[in-house]
Design a protein around this nucleic acid. Structure first.
Lengths: 186, 186
DNA sequence: GAGTATATGGTACGACTGTTTCAATAACGA
DNA sequence: TCGTTATTGAAACAGTCGTACCATATACTC
C-alpha cells in the first residue's frame, strides 16, 4: 500500500540530463544549474540517483546506449569498396550532428586518465566496436579474429576526429582519410 | 631605488607549478593545494601571475615548451626504413615517461572542446609538428608541401595513444602501428 | 476517514573556490 | 636613518559545491 512509485520520472529525468550533458559537457556539471534546466530540484536528482557520481554514471551509460543505437542504425553495408565503407563511417561520425557525442567521448577519456577509478569499464568503450568494425573490413583483415585491423582503423578515425575537432580543418582531415583508404586497399 | 624585483622567483614557481600540473592534471587544479605543494601561498601565486587563468596559460606554455625541447632532442634520424622511423616516434611518445605529457595533452584538448575561447591557439598544437613529421617521412610524401601524410601519421599516433592510455593494451597497439608502417611502405 | 509509502520544497551545513583587503616585512639607494 | 619599492602573511569576502535534515504534500489501500 501507500503511494505507488513512479519509475518513469527517473527515466524522464535521465533522458533530459543526458541531453543537458551532451549539450554542456561533463567538466563543469553542477546539480543546481542542471536541476533548473530540467525544471526540477537538486533534491529530486539526489532522490532519484543517490549521488552526483551515480547520476553521472547513469548519464554516461545512457549516452553510450544512444550512441550504440545510432551506430546500429548506420552499420555500413558490406557492399562497396573499402574506400566507400571507410568514408561512410567517417562521414557519419564526423558529421556535425555527432559533435556532442564526440566531445563527451573525448571528455570522458581525459577525465578517465586523471581518475581511472571512476571509469572501471573504460576499456570497453574502445574494444566494444571491434566486432562491428572487424566484420565491416573483413576483406582487408589478416584473419577471423584480427584485432589489429580494427585497432588501426579506429585509431585513424579517432586521431582524425581529434584533429578535426581541434583545428576544424575538414578538407585536410577528409583527404587524410582517403589516403588511408587507399593504403588499406592495396 | 627600492627593493629590486626578483623575476627568478616567478620562473622557479612556474617550473614547479608545471611539474605539479603534469603530475596531478589540469581538471581539479586549485590554488590552495598547489601553493602548499610548492611551499608558497595562493597570495604569491596571484601576485606573480595575476589570476588563476593566467597561471594556467603560463603552465601550459611551459609544458608545451618542454615538450618541444624533448622532441627536438629526439628527432628520429632520416636513415633507416619507414618502419624504423615510425617505430622510433611511437616508442618515444608512448613511453611511460611521456605519460604525464600525453595526459595533459588529452586533457587540454577535451577542455578546449567545451571552452574554445580559452585556447585561441589550439590548432597550432596540432599543426606545429607537421614540418618535423613531414620532413621525417619525405620519402612517402606526395610532394614538398604534403600535409596529408603528416596528418595521417599524426592521427595514427594520436589515435593509438588514445587506445593505449584507455586500454593499456600495449601489444595490440604496437602491432597496429607496425601494420600501419607496412601499409605506408608499399 | 486512518494508515502508509512516495514524492517534494525549503533550508542549512561544512567545505571548498578564486580573489581582495589590510597590514607587515624586507631589501635596496641616498 | 629615511624613503621607496618589492614581497609576503593572515584573514575575510562572496560565491559555489554536494549533500543532509525536516517538514509537508500527494496518492494509494483498507
Amino acid at each position: 500500500m501507500g503511494r505507488p512509485a513512479d519509475p518513469a520520472r527517473r527515466e524522464r529525468t535521465l533522458a533530459q540530463a543526458t541531453d543537458y550533458v551532451l549539450a554542456h559537457g561533463l567538466a563543469g556539471l553542477s546539480l543546481r544549474p542542471l536541476a533548473e534546466a530540467l525544471d526540477t530540484s537538486p533534491r529530486m536528482l539526489l532522490y532519484d540517483f543517490g549521488s552526483k557520481q551515480e547520476l553521472v554514471a547513469a548519464v554516461l551509460a545512457e549516452a553510450r546506449r544512444r550512441g550504440a543505437v545510432r551506430l546500429a542504425e548506420h552499420i555500413p553495408p558490406k557492399t562497396g569498396s573499402v574506400q566507400e565503407r571507410l568514408r561512410g563511417i567517417w562521414e557519419w561520425i564526423s558529421a556535425d550532428e555527432r559533435a556532442p557525442f564526440v566531445r563527451l567521448f573525448f571528455e570522458v577519456h581525459a577525465d578517465g586518465l586523471v581518475h581511472p577509478e571512476n571509469y572501471p569499464d573504460q576499456g570497453e568503450a574502445i574494444t566494444d566496436w571491434f566486432d562491428t568494425v572487424g566484420a565491416t573490413f573483413r576483406d582487408v583483415s589478416t584473419g577471423p579474429d584480427d584485432t589489429v585491423t580494427s585497432t588501426l582503423v579506429m585509431a585513424v578515425v579517432r586521431g582524425l576526429l581529434f584533429d578535426l575537432t581541434a583545428t576544424g580543418d575538414r578538407h585536410r582531415t577528409d583527404r587524410a582519410l582517403d589516403r588511408f583508404a587507399e593504403l588499406l586497399n592495396q
